[in-house]
Design a binder for these strands. Structure first.
Lengths: 152, 152
DNA sequence: ATATAAATAGTCAAAGAAGGTCAAAAGTGG
DNA sequence: CCACTTTTGACCTTCTTTGACTATTTATAT
């Protein structure tokens, strides 16, 4: 029995292929089409179209709302970039994050100015309000989001 | 489906660009043109042309009434930069932070790329691991840190 | 002048249209 | 049976559209 999740997954991937990298869907319409509850769409996206899988997701609510799923480009430099993004994991120290950012600068994947902004964003001063315990997780999220945005 | 609100927004912005900074419209005429109720014009103005977005709005009722939407001119960009850093306070919503960043881009205090990185850093996706309650505080810290770094 | 009509714009809340979250229930493979 | 994944559903948040009612300004008739 083919899992619905897999069917929806391929459906979305097909759209992405056809349009050359981006699928813009409407949650309710899709749920209706596959005869499932809307939140199943969220499940599919949350398990199959994550950063780790190389996708970037945005959405808007309200009238005319939608969900946009973008595949990051897969040219050579991006592969390297992606590889580094994946190596970040879901928790990272300031020291390690800074090292990564400096690496990105060294490899010229980002400019020194980009590096300055990023280091400011993930520095301990910027995250001092976070309850110790999840600081490293927040830092990882911030770092990955910043990097993803640059290649999506 | 394209949101009417967005259509009206771009229409007004086009006028502002053409006239070099100011749009004078008539609410009813515009509503008629876009086939909506007049108050939708107020909605567009109230959500897209606020002070935070860098606009100033005046109006007059009665015969020959009108709504004037002016883009705020900034004489000394640097002052604006400093002023906004100070005005951020110790807590800020994603909405407000995004508006600030977009403003910085509009006034060319930062590049669009800088803006992308910054918005990624303060987006709710990046801060989802923060214990709800202090998300806005963390965001304020991050934003201030990034901005400070650029002028120090 | 004054009262009244006409022409505008403003406010606010309800209805409508999406999407998000989270946990319980159900299914599956080992 | 156990651990893991998928399916479902109840409830929440955000954004847009609509409309009834209000406020202000200008025009017109007395």
């Amino acid at each position: 029995m083919a899992r619905l999740t897999d069917v929806i997954e391929s459906f979305i991937k097909e759209i992405i292929n056809e349009t050359g990298g981006e699928a813009e869907i409407q949650r309710n319409a899709l749920a209706l089409r596959f005869n499932c509850v809307p939140s199943q769409i969220n499940y599919v996206i949350g398990t199959r179209f994550t950063t780790e899988h190389g996708y970037f997701v945005e959405s808007r609510r309200g009238g005319g709302g939608h969900i946009k799923i973008k595949q990051i480009a897969i040219s050579k430099p991006y592969n390297m970039f992606m590889h580094l993004i994946l190596s970040i994991g879901d928790s990272i120290s300031e020291h390690a994050a800074t090292a990564h950012i400096n690496n990105f600068v060294d490899y010229m994947l980002i400019t020194p100015r980009d590096g300055i902004i990023m280091k400011a964003a993930i520095g301990s001063k910027a995250l001092k309000s976070s309850n110790s315990g999840n600081t490293d997780a927040i830092r990882a999220d911030i770092l990955k989001n910043m990097l993803m945005r640059l290649i999506v």
